[in-house]
Design a protein around this nucleic acid. Structure first.
Length: 823
RNA sequence: GGGCAAGUGGUGGAAUGGCAUACACGUUGGACUUAAAAUCCAAUGGCCGUAAGGCCGUGUGGGUUCGACUCCCACCUUGCCCACCA
């Protein structure tokens, strides 16, 4: 048989069918046997797989196969994150049923995955849009609601009047709806939230346990959770009973406060400005700010404008009356929606005070410029320093003062020390059709009630018309909405909101452990055996949301008593993106390369090899068609070498006593390659593992001319096939069968071990340096002493040339490697 | 503004204190061929030199060291994440 495109397609199809028929990768729990759970982030089934999937899943597949041959019981499942907007958009655009559209995409996707030859246990395949899956979403939701972790409250959300639905922040592009371009407005709506903030301390603290996660992901999560220590300080309104509470992380600057700022949306604003002279101007200003997009305001591109309210507040530490302003740079979303302004020690306050000619006072003296005055100040001094103009705290270091003033204010009841979290509760409800229905019922008499557990799942109705107009499609579906009240039996309405799809993906890794369980969210025994996920692999774009939600759910399940661990993913690998011509490969850029077209021409093994060889897993990968050619050429050479050199009928024993110099060297290289590939696979350095296999093949080709001992060649062929198999499984299965391997699959063959003795060399090359510069190379017996080496090196004519009349000051000897002569 | 990566031949990359550019792509030359493809062989960082050989060279500038792509300090550039965060 030759290795042509036609043949390789036959070989790949043949082995894919064998793996499927024999259920080669089906696994079951085996108490007492070491398990390994390798998982890649499951795909949204948008149709064909793309290069990003290929890269992600090939990395995972090599790890899975490597762990299998090392004797682990390996769980390697695959499924589909199948709810979500694209299905609804397709429905609106092409008048197709979202379920049908999704399932046909899943079929395409599965086909693509199978053509890559991935080692999935297909018995565990799941799709989140399957009622057998999403009923457990509803169950989890009910459990959360029971504990007050799922709740409903009114809050301002992004609302598109065109589509009549809420939008996620990411769906608002420059203040407009990403789909219909209508201007997005803020609207107060009753929405479901998950109280993730109840876990903020644990979510932050447990990041320390994740020592095998990339630093940047840890940093991003820390940043997102955003714990900051500070003080809530109360400013009494002059002449009124109300109090403005501000949050600050810099209580040490309290004596420098010269005005107070409220966010335009602050609840006190209306009462405060009612009837003041410039009331109309204030209303105009607030309306102006409201018109500015939220995103423009938050990025700081907008304004830094403000207006005086005509009212005064009292600084509790010194009784000073200070102006109250309204400004767009103060955000309602953060802190208390009110800030104390210290222009001398906060750059934003500094610019604002300059613009509106507001007073300033230095309260922290810069040790580098102790004579600084307000007149000479060109920007705020935000660093550490010594307190001045601060009453009894004068002379104290500002770092120490943060704590001391906080304590003092607490004692004097001027404020409280507090911890502020950036993390907000998670808005989970969507006015969409293609998602998990939230299992609640509203009765006019009895109020809001959860659906009884035994009534689950609340299934999505079929044959819904989706137009993109008129709000949630479920609202118009009487057979879904109209129901009986579980308490009084009277007419009631179902909740028509569905869950955001991040809910679905927050726990799927647990469901894989027992996907067919019909009575429980997941089998606790199976979860205890398989979890935690030993290696999780996916894109950096999920560094915050998905991974944070998954951690939250795991902690919740632990509190429910279902599991006894509190982090789901032991080790995390974030693979780099696939680029084409320096840009991320994407449909919108139109620079995608279809994996199927590559498989069609070169086969899956070449694609797998090429994508692993081109770059280390975490790095960006620049796609090049030429690189596939190289992979193809290499596999070709492997195939022809083994076909041509392996002798199936040869039965002689390998005897190291008969080895001549060449044999010994080739044998050494075989062992060195085993060692290198094993180490590289363990550290996911697939590119260098592949290069070491290429080096071995290059040596094997040269050996052909020098000497040939069939026993050694046979050994080399066998070893080579096993080492290459995790990367290029189809061709290696075929070759293993051709050389007469008795095992059902090359996956059943034990991984080779290297022999340290075989790695030893009789002679070693010693590098000679003079003053750190390379001046000679010597092949010296490995047994030579330092003294002998010194004599040899010093006797060398070329080395002498560089020594000339100078004397050797120092002789540095690194055993087996080099000598350096310092003159 | 804050955080995290990264910067090495024409290209992807290797080397984590000890021969810089492994391995591959590309290019050039050669073999085979009527020819092409495929395959095989050889060369391939820059400068000087007929050659032997020498000098320079891992973003920039310093430092530590017998020795630095590698460690330390400062800076520049690029990418990603966060950000009027009080």
């Amino acid at each position: 048989m030759s290795y042509t495109t036609e043949e390789i397609k036959k070989i790949e199809a043949k082995w894919q069918k064998i793996w499927q028929d024999r259920e080669t990768f089906k696994v079951d729990m085996q108490e007492g046997r070491k398990k390994y759970y390798v998982l890649e982030m499951f795909p949204y089934p948008s149709g064909k797989i793309h290069m990003g999937h290929v890269r992600n899943y090939t990395i995972a597949d090599v790890i899975a196969r490597f762990k299998i041959v090392q004797g682990f019981n390996v769980l390697h499942p695959m499924g589909y994150d199948a709810f979500g907007q694209p299905a609804e958009n397709a429905a609106i655009k092409n008048d197709v049923d979202p379920a049908q559209w999704t399932y046909s995409c899943i079929d395409q996707m599965r086909g693509g995955l199978k053509r890559m030859g991935f080692s999935y246990d297909w018995n565990r395949e799941l799709a989140t849009c399957d009622p057998r899956y999403y009923r457990w979403n509803q169950w989890i939701f009910l459990k959360m609601a029971e504990r007050g972790l799922a709740y409903k409250k009114a809050s301002p959300v992004n609302w598109c009047p065109g589509c009549e639905t809420t939008l996620a922040n990411e769906e608002v592009i420059q203040g407009e709806c990403w789909r219909c371009k209508t201007e997005v407005v803020q609207k107060d709506l009753e929405q479901w939230y998950l109280k993730i903030t109840q876990y903020n301390e644990k979510l932050l603290g447990d990041l320390k346990k994740l020592e095998y996660w990339p630093d940047r992901v840890i940093a991003m999560q820390e940043n997102w959770i955003g714990k900051s220590y500070g003080v809530n300080i109360h400013f009494r309104l002059k002449g009124k009973g109300d109090v403005i509470t501000v949050f600050t992380t810099r209580p040490d600057t309290i004596f420098g406060v010269t005005y107070v700022v409220l966010a335009p949306e602050h609840p006190l604003v209306e009462g405060l400005t009612n009837g003041v002279d410039n009331e109309d101007d204030i209303k105009k200003f607030i309306a102006e700010v409201a018109k500015t997009g939220k995103s423009a305001r938050q990025t700081g591109e907008a304004g830094k404008g403000g207006i005086f309210t005509g009212q005064y507040a009292v600084n509790p530490v010194n009784g000073e009356a200070i102006e109250i302003w309204i400004a767009d740079y103060c955000l309602m979303e953060y802190g208390t929606g009110a800030i104390m302004s210290v222009p001398t020690h906060d750059q934003r306050d500094f610019l604002f005070a300059k613009k509106y000619n507001l007073p300033m006072r230095i309260v922290i003296s810069d040790p580098q410029a102790p004579d600084q005055t307000i007149e000479t100040m060109s920007c705020a001094y935000e660093e550490e320093g010594v307190l001045v103009n601060s009453g009894k705290f004068d002379g104290m270091n500002s770092d120490a003062a943060v704590c001391e003033i906080g304590k003092w204010m607490e004692k004097e009841k001027m404020g409280e020390m507090t911890v502020h979290w950036r993390l907000r509760d998670w808005l989970i409800s969507r006015q969409r059709y293609w998602g998990t229905p939230i299992p609640f019922i509203y009765c006019g008499k009895c109020g809001m009630m959860p659906v009884a557990e035994e009534q689950l799942p609340v299934e999505l109705p079929e044959n819904i018309t989706i137009t993109g107009e008129g709000g949630s499609p479920l609202n118009h579906c009487a057979e879904f909405v109209d129901t009986a009240c579980p308490k009084c039996g009277g007419g009631a309405r179902r909740e028509t909101d569905t869950m955001a799809t991040f809910f679905d993906s927050a726990w799927y890794y647990l469901r894989y452990c027992s996907p067919k369980n019909e009575t429980q969210v997941f089998g606790p025994k199976e979860a205890a055996y398989w979890m935690t996920v030993d290696q999780y692999i996916g894109g950096i774009e999920h560094a915050i949301l998905h991974l944070l939600y998954s951690r939250f759910f795991t902690k919740f399940f632990k509190d429910l008593g279902l599991i006894d661990f509190d982090e789901p993913f032991h080790r995390l690998l974030t693979q780099g993106m696939v680029l084409k011509d320096g840009e991320v490969m994407s449909k919108s850029k139109g620079n995608t390369v279809d994996p199927d077209s590559i498989i069609e021409k070169y086969g899956a093994d070449s694609l797998r090899l090429c994508i692993l060889f081109a770059a280390p897993p975490e790095d960006q990968l620049e796609w090049s068609n030429g690189a596939v050619d190289g992979a193809w050429k290499f596999l070709n050479r492997v195939y022809h070498y083994i076909e041509g050199r392996y002798d199936k009928d040869f039965s002689g024993e390998l005897s190291e006593n008969d080895f001549d110099c060449e044999d010994k060297e080739l044998n050494r290289q075989i062992h060195a390659t085993v060692k290198k590939v094993t180490e590289d696979f363990s550290h996911y350095k697939f590119n260098t593992a592949i290069s070491s296999l290429m080096i071995l093949l290059n040596h094997a080709d040269k050996y052909k001319q020098a000497s040939q001992k069939q026993a050694l060649i046979n050994k080399l062929c066998r070893t080579f096939i096993i080492l290459l198999a995790p990367i290029a499984p189809h061709i290696c299965e075929e070759l293993w069968q051709e050389i007469g391997g008795q095992e059902e699959s090359v996956i059943d063959v034990a991984w080779p071990e290297h022999d340290e003795n075989a790695l030893k060399q009789d002679t070693v090359q010693i590098i000679a340096q003079v003053n750190g510069k390379l001046r000679g190379k010597f092949n010296i017996s490995a047994k030579s002493s330092e003294e002998e080496i010194r004599r040899i090196v010093l006797a060398d004519a070329k080395v002498q040339e560089f020594l000339k009349s100078k004397s050797v000051k120092k002789f540095i000897y690194v055993p087996g490697k080099l000598v350096n002569l310092v003159v």
